[in-house]
Nucleic acid binder design. Structure first.
Lengths: 129, 129
DNA sequence: CCGAATCCGGGACGATACTG
DNA sequence: CAGTATCGTCCCGGATTCGG
């Protein structure tokens, strides 16, 4: 495989009313980095650069884009502190936190079917702390 | 939306050994159409064109690529019947079928947080039949 | 520190035609 | 029916620079 494009949320074929909830969910969390971003934020609130450092291979621009889409979709909350130096913290909304079962299911599948992987979801969360 | 790139599986940053099971899972099922393909195949085995018609907006080339990646990742089984006219049937492997909890979790989240959506997972499966 | 804006190359993707 | 081949476009996404 080459790259993958963005698989992002996008408006993704919004011409069709999106009857399917699976499709609707995929349109919101299917972005290239969104799953991992959500995983990081499930553990705790994080600052921009902290998030960036925890995503090897993700560029600043990509992270910004993905966070903006997640924010627009009501999954991530962005809190700006008017300080010097500036500080911005990202956290999950209630809607975002309810994605935990999805992430957990992916984790359990990956743990079972992929080699060289962390033991379980809790450990993953701990290691992400 | 625009397009979205592919968000596909790709080798996606295979330089790092992929310690995280969530990341590993995303690398395999994160492709642009993979979630919907898996949903279709959860219902029953399907032929190529049948699958294609059930995915509005997906081109034959894209479908071929995604199916090949899914096959290479051991999620989809491809059965060729030496007939005239040719017939090829796609189904989920056991590994693929075990993705049902992931799809179900996405479905339940979508049903709860997105408008104008089917009532529940079973109905979605039925409608996809 | 946290971005936004710009430039630009490469590859993902659509369209079309062809084959067994 | 189920693909493969080829071509051209578009836009994703990396690098860099600038601003608050």
């Amino acid at each position: 495989m080459a790259k993958m494009g963005t698989a992002g949320s996008r408006k993704a074929r919004h011409q069709d009313p999106e009857h399917c909830p699976v499709e609707a969910a995929l349109n919101k969390i299917g972005g290239k980095w969104k799953g991992l971003i959500i995983l990081r934020l499930l553990v705790r609130t994080r600052r921009f650069n902290e998030l960036l450092r925890s995503l090897p291979g993700c560029t600043q621009r990509m992270l910004t884009n993905q966070l903006r889409e997640l924010e627009a979709d009501g999954i991530v909350h962005r809190e700006v502190y008017p300080e010097v130096p500036p500080r911005v913290e990202y956290s999950l909304t209630e809607t975002g936190r309810e994605l935990m079962p999805v992430i957990r299911a992916m984790c359990e599948w990956g743990q079972k079917h992929v080699q060289h992987v962390e033991p379980d979801f809790e450990t993953v969360l701990e290691n992400a702390a």
